[in-house]
């Protein structure tokens, strides 16, 4: 958010609804994309964006302008997305529509067989929410570790550890399914 918006942020902190709308208009796409990267479903990402901004508005008095709006919003959005991931049952996560997206044209490596891609995607949905979020943001979305750490409220080292654990669990899951990566 540019420096000229400092006044808007100050008004938002005091609970000004117009300032909140202005911030929403400016930030909704950024927040939506971040959530979409974690939950991987457009409709859900829209619902969770609404939930995120509701939480942002409720927490307006705790907002620290010195810290910046985006990192703060990203952290709230990440918590909302993680809550959603935790509430979902892993076996119900891959709907036919999502599976089609995951396995048809989505793969960046055409050499990887469709069956392996499907099984990898399924194993991915079985990862614990916090490992899954760290892995997808770091490996698939290639977000900087520092940004991921800020959004999860942990250190960069902890992010790397979570990614490592996620990859190890994925390997074990695939081996269990008879796939030797």
């Amino acid at each position: 958010m540019p420096e000229s918006s400092k006044n808007v942020l100050d008004r938002f902190r005091q609970g000004d609804a117009d300032a909140f709308e202005e911030i929403f208009r400016e930030q909704q796409t950024t927040v939506y994309r971040w959530i979409l990267r974690i939950v991987r479903d457009k409709g859900t990402a829209e619902d969770l964006t609404v939930e995120t901004f509701w939480r942002i508005y409720r927490a307006h008095a705790r907002f620290d302008p010195a810290r910046g709006f985006e990192p703060w919003a990203r952290q709230i959005a990440t918590h909302v997305a993680l809550d959603w991931l935790r509430a979902r049952k892993p076996e119900s996560e891959i709907t036919p529509a999502v599976e089609a997206t995951l396995t048809a044209a989505g793969g960046s490596d055409p050499g990887v067989q469709a069956e392996i891609r499907t099984k990898t995607a399924e194993a991915f949905t079985r990862l614990p929410a916090k490992l899954r979020a760290a892995a997808v943001l770091a490996v698939v979305e290639e977000q900087p570790h520092k940004v991921i750490a800020g959004s999860l409220g942990i250190s960069v080292t902890a992010v790397k550890l979570r990614v490592f654990r996620a990859l190890r669990l994925l390997r074990k899951d695939l081996e269990h399914q008879g796939i030797r990566p």
Binding site: L102, G107, T118, F124
Partner: peptide
Amino acid sequence: IKELLKAAVPRI
């Protein structure tokens, strides 16, 4: 494993 994950889960 990273390659597999990238192939299975497309980037947004």
